[in-house]
């Protein structure tokens, strides 16, 4: 049983094949990682899964149904929430208003949406900044806001696109338990991440994308010693050199 099944997704931008026949599955209740060097096509694949980018070929199956043709807002309503790598706050609104926009998806009343929004703000550590404008937040604060807004839609599947990038080590230490707590509540997570500390700590299963292709998958430990993965990151022949030095 899988919650999300990505089958043979290809995305062609003119002459550039950003994603090339990539497949992955996310079992319910797990945290699955998606890693790969810069420009590998991870964010493009996320865009396809969340409905922002139409694929050239392939299909997306969510909860047993083919959702390839569904627009983003419909996927959000069916329980797929995403964060943006480049944060997209509603800059003119306050923190709690930002989160409430997400909460309105499941709560029609203002009082309910605001209450849910302020609960979630406290959970992700934005409780002290409820009424500040979103534009006043630091980078770390904006990343938390992305997470809070996505959570407010009460998702079944949460797509996290580099929520840890740009944070310092102590900020990363603060956020990791929050992500673990989200999973503990039964939300399935698929995350793109560069911070290996987080990938090792959080993910049960990791997929590696390089130049648009899925080149490896496995447990984080297995991935770290995989020759193809090392070469994708460090260049051709790097795996051999590392073994020679070891």
């Amino acid at each position: 049983m899988t919650l999300l099944h990505v089958e043979g997704i290809t995305k062609q931008f003119g002459g550039l094949r950003a994603v090339d026949n990539a497949s992955l599955s996310v079992p319910p209740g797990t945290i699955t990682g998606l890693i790969g060097p810069n420009g590998a096509g991870k964010t493009t694949l996320f865009g396809v899964i969340s409905g922002f980018i139409p694929p050239t070929a392939g299909r997306i199956v969510y909860n047993g149904a083919d959702i390839t043709a569904h627009p983003p807002h419909r996927r959000a309503r069916s329980g797929i929430a995403r964060t943006f790598q480049i944060v997209q706050p509603f800059a003119g609104l306050s923190v709690v208003e930002n989160i409430a926009v997400g909460a309105y998806l499941r709560h029609a009343k203002r009082a309910d949406a605001t209450r849910v929004a302020s609960d979630i703000a406290h959970r992700v550590g934005l409780g002290a900044m409820l009424h500040q404008p979103a534009s006043a937040l630091t980078v770390a604060g904006r990343k938390r806001l992305e997470l809070a807004r996505a959570l407010a839609t009460a998702p079944r599947l949460l797509l996290l696109d580099e929520v840890l990038a740009g944070l310092n080590p102590s900020e990363i230490r603060d956020i990791i338990p929050i992500i673990q707590a989200i999973r503990a509540e039964g939300v399935t997570i698929l995350m793109i991440e560069h911070v290996m500390q987080a990938v090792m700590n959080l993910c049960e299963h990791v997929y590696v994308l390089s130049q648009g292709r899925m080149i490896a998958e496995g447990t984080p430990q297995a991935i770290c010693t995989d020759e193809q993965v090392i070469e994708a990151y460090l260049g051709h022949g790097a795996a051999g050199q590392m073994q020679a030095h070891a």
């Binding site: 969340s50 627009p71 807002h73 959000a76 509603f90 926009v101 807004r149």
Partner: peptide, 13 residues
Amino acid sequence: RENEDAARALGID
């Protein structure tokens, strides 16, 4: 008004 992509991601048509 503030951000169409973010609105879409939160289920707004």
